[in-house]
Design a protein around this nucleic acid. Structure first.
Lengths: 202, 202, 202, 202
DNA sequence: TCGTAACCGAGACGGTACGTCTGGTCTTTTT
DNA sequence: AAAAAGACCAGACGTACCGTCTCGGTTACGA
């Protein structure tokens, strides 16, 4: 969202200080308080920056939240290799879930998803940042497990990912029950068992 | 949200005509167009009603959408009985999923979930309407299956429900893949297989 | 304003209790607090009466204030006779001015005058109640003085009344100076002197 | 009301174009139609300006009307000098009443006076603009006449001004009779005669 | 005594203006 | 060119008030 040709261009260069201040203010406000209760004016003041500077680099409040969230979440991009799919999945999901418990992330995610349904460009951006990468990594782990013979070749990888992530997001967004480490394990175990089993329909 | 003691009270009674017109306008607008793009003014005009009348009975736009959505969704409340859990679950989930495909419901749901994370009272209302009832019915179906011996007594019912509904909501909200009838079947089959299996950890 | 054929008509007769309660509430509120800050709802509640009952007898808030004010002001309608115009005028103006000082009447008067300029029917009503009668009585006093030879036959009675009442209303409405008894006397004396004198233009 | 330090300050300067457009729209609407029938929305639209811009500079409709009226009235600030008080007063009053007859100014004045009685700050502003200046000028004229020997040293200047302006405002506000040039002359003549005369009380 | 008609209290309603707020843009000076 | 400051536009917000209406119920009179 805040990408531009990074070549040296004439004129005053972009202030890195301002960029950082904005993202930090966004993290402090947008990732914590209910989305709609944070105004751009407050954000700008908190960052010690003018509103115009924010809008020069981010088209809307949601895009800023997206960047701020991405900065917090997607630090670790490497694939784990524990020699079992169960171990790999837990190595990916457990740290994420633990991070989830440190802040009310359900709040931002819900707000971002609302925007996803209103603005196709934003939807594209959101999926690029938070869906595709994660699913590609999950897909790689599962395919590796198939190669190892842990799962049948006929395994529906998308289904697997939706069961795994879907149940976690479900609790995150609806808040009807906590996302404990135990829950993550059960989700992984049950999903893998289901995928592995030869289940005959009635 | 708009319930009050239905006793005969002094004064002009609430206009049933207005109530219906408002809910219908809400269904036409809030359940279709991006939430934030629908103003209360437009809603009031569409319903042929004054804004004050809406605010007298619904505290916010989200509450109104909640009622309108509830009116559309929660018509069928009876438990199916197909003598198998698979059949029962499909009997519940398939009609719901089919209805989901008729309108961009992900839009409203996302907006409602955003509000859930901002207003505890609203969250309570939301869960009462859209979470608890559905989960109770699911719980009943699963417990019946346990009685029949289809699933072990140790089955984690909440886990089951989160796997089932979580994966469906995941696609509804993220929109990365369609919710086909085939997908519903796979979700049900894989979840049931996972629950039934004795899965040994590595 | 609240007049109707006082004949006996079929049906429940008008409640004298309600009428009085309304006028008293109006006097307590409309004649004291800034006009626009008193709502009909508050008025109705204060009078222990429904809004509809007020509107049945008075078409608007201003009409009600008019009646309430009239009830307070126009009790004394008889002509004084002190054998001098000066005495007669002071006998009329002094009590009025003293009453003026007991409450912030400028407030209501200004509000009523505003309505006079917006609603011709109301203007008619206002003048009937507060202008014509008073001017007729003033006219009578002055004509009597002319008969007595205190003033020339050519005296412009309307001019006289505008000088007398105009200067008092001026202070009442603009509030730049108090309306003391001394001021009333000076107004009367100077006006009468001016009317009596043969003033030659340059 | 819309005054601010005119120094060069950082940031976008106030739009002179908007300011003018607002005052002109106010003159066209507020000085012509009944005050309460003109909404701020209509005013803003007429001026091609957002409501917020109006409220940034004028706290209420009345303040705006005050400025608009001032712009129309108080153009001429110089003292006339016709070598007689009568001439001086007519030179001041005649142009003013002629202007009065061009538009329904009684309407605005009544509305402003209503606000004067509701808001002390506004009252202060009103008197500064429309009372003090005019009275100071009148006072100067009269004092000059006293120096010339046209009036006794004991003349009550405030009384004089209240007689002069009071009678004119009286007709303006009550509308019971027109303010003809002839009337102005009579008011001046009679007042001056009254002030000049040695009037003996009975 | 009973019906009819006008009244009353309560309070919901349509309409409309209010003054505020926020998102996002624009204009100026300064860096 | 970029930034800070802050004025600006557009338009939704939720509230408030006005004056009307719709109920259930009351109070008189005349049949």
């Amino acid at each position: 969202m805040s990408t531009r040709a990074e070549q040296r261009r004439p004129g005053r260069p972009r202030s890195e200080k301002a960029r950082t201040a904005i993202l930090e203010a966004a993290a402090d406000l947008l990732l914590v308080r209910p989305f709609r209760e944070v105004s751009m004016d407050e954000l700008a003041e908190r960052a010690g920056v003018s509103k115009a500077t924010i809008y020069r680099w981010w088209p809307k409040k949601e895009s800023l939240a997206l960047d701020a969230l991405f900065r917090e979440w997607e630090v670790e991009q490497s694939l784990p290799d524990t020699s079992s799919l169960r171990g790999d999945l837990l190595a990916v999901l457990r740290p994420w879930v633990r991070r989830l418990r440190t802040r009310p992330y359900g709040r931002v995610i819900a707000a971002l998803l609302t925007e996803v349904h209103a603005d196709p460009d934003f939807a594209e951006e959101y999926r690029t940042r938070f869906v595709h990468g994660r699913r590609e990594r999950g897909r790689a782990l599962i395919n590796r497990a198939i190669e190892r013979g842990e799962l049948p070749r006929s395994t529906d990888v998308d289904l697997a990912l939706d069961l795994l992530y879907g149940s976690l997001y479900h609790r995150l967004l609806h808040g009807h029950a906590p996302i404990s480490d135990r829950f993550v394990e059960k989700v992984v175990d049950t999903t893998l068992a289901g995928l592995a089993a030869e289940y005959r329909k009635t």
